[in-house]
Amino acid sequence: MNENDTGKPLLDMPEKVRLIIQRETEDGLRRFRAGNFDSPLQAAGRIRPERTKFAPGLFRRAWIPVFGLAVGAIVIISAVLWFTRTKPQLPAANLAIFDAALSDLPGFRTLSLSHQTETAANEDLSPATAAMSTALTFATRSAAAWQETSAPPAGKLVPRYTLEQKMKILFDDKTIEQALSLFKDKFKEV
């Protein structure tokens, strides 16, 4: 054998042929190195371009807090929107409903007629509102009378009422209770 495996000059190959091959190979490699052989393969998605070593860690470190803040903001905004949208809405007060409810009470009508002259301020109010005001005035008076009469003497705890006082107290309590129950029903309807 007249050559070895290290690629030394071929002894039985004409020098001219060897030089032609060598020149062709060198020219070709020079042009091959000058071109960008890798880019078509990268474009084909086969190879990802080289990345700097610090970039992935930096991005990872930066994205964790940013992502956390974004998620937190979304959760807070969602909670606020949910609470504001789902908050129970009370029906707006409607004076007409109050008037109608109070007008339906016979006690209020009676009170309104009998005590219309007591308060000049009530003249501008509707009959039902005036009746309510009167009822409250009665209640206040009743409470005051109760305190006067029930001031127990030393050693005695049981108050003493006249029949008229007891009736007034019962009437006032019953009137207020009926009014409140009627309001409750009206609000349920609304």
């Binding site: 091959i21 062709e24 190979t25 070709g28 490699l29 091959f32 190195r33 052989f37 890798d38 393969l41 086969r46 190879i47």
Partner: peptide
Amino acid sequence: FRELIGYKEDVFRICLG
């Protein structure tokens, strides 16, 4: 991939031949 690309000149010489 990188290892394969490292042999690109060997492959090119054969293709040229």
